[in-house]
């Protein structure tokens, strides 16, 4: 038999079974994330091709629209939420009780909501300034790329809520831990994408 242990969360004290079961599921989730990465990759490429004078079509550009202060806050909130998400997983790993894990997940949700709220406020201000997605190709691709990341975050918030419910109902089941592990991967992945957006869209846009 090949080694089937999955590093990270220990999924059950005595049953190696849980590990064997988790292996294909977690691997499948990684494959999904890689495919999602292609999705973002294409939007990044589209953004890059439209971040030109032609792509802005005489409309407003980064210098008039971006609010780096808000972006910095968003980045901070999202990175902190990754930390709390990791702490939730550690709480399960070290059996600190499902209450602790739920607490960290709630913190994750709050930080995620803060991120989303700030992002929506920026969108609102841009639209108020006439920078709507139908103004130019550049704005179309900006809203598509950043918006898709925002949608992923929203889906993640729903998922976190479901995880809280599951931790409450069936905290000891291997399936619950497996799902927590996947949620963690997903959430950290979104962090990574955000770093890409921060560098390519905001920092490069104002450079």
């Amino acid at each position: 038999m090949i080694h089937r242990l999955y590093p990270g969360l220990n999924l059950g004290p005595a049953h190696g079974d849980d590990h064997a079961e988790a292996e294909p599921v977690i691997f499948g989730f990684w494959v999904f994330l890689m495919s999602d990465l292609i999705t973002f990759g294409i939007l990044f490429a589209t953004y890059a091709t439209s971040a030109t004078t032609m792509g802005r079509a005489g409309g407003p550009g980064p210098a008039e629209l971006f609010n780096l202060g808000s972006v910095a806050l968003q980045t901070g909130a999202l990175l902190a939420s990754s930390l709390t998400c990791g702490l939730a997983a550690l709480a399960v790993k070290h059996r600190l009780g499902s209450g602790t894990a739920v607490g960290w997940l709630i913190a994750t949700m709050l930080l995620g909501t803060m991120f989303l709220g700030l992002e929506l406020r920026d969108f609102h201000q841009m639209i108020g300034a006439g920078a709507t997605p139908d103004r130019s190709a550049w704005l179309s691709s900006y809203f598509a790329l950043v918006g898709l990341h925002g949608l992923h975050i929203s889906a993640g918030l729903i998922w976190a809520a479901v995880m809280i419910g599951l931790l409450h109902r069936q905290p000891e089941e291997g399936r619950t831990k497996q799902r927590l592990l996947m949620f963690g991967l997903y959430w950290h992945f979104l962090d990574l994408i955000w770093i890409g957006i921060l560098s390519v869209v905001f920092l490069a846009g104002l450079a």
Binding site: I42, T49, G55, G59, P133, R135, S136, A137, A144
Partner: peptide, 24 residues
């Protein structure tokens, strides 16, 4: 992605692939 971008062009007036306003 390309299909959804086209849908955004069609429904919400985005400019990914249009002739005007920088679409390509």
């Amino acid at each position: 992605v390309s299909s959804l971008m086209l849908a955004l062009d069609r429904v919400l007036g985005f400019h990914f692939f249009t002739n005007d306003l920088g679409g390509n």
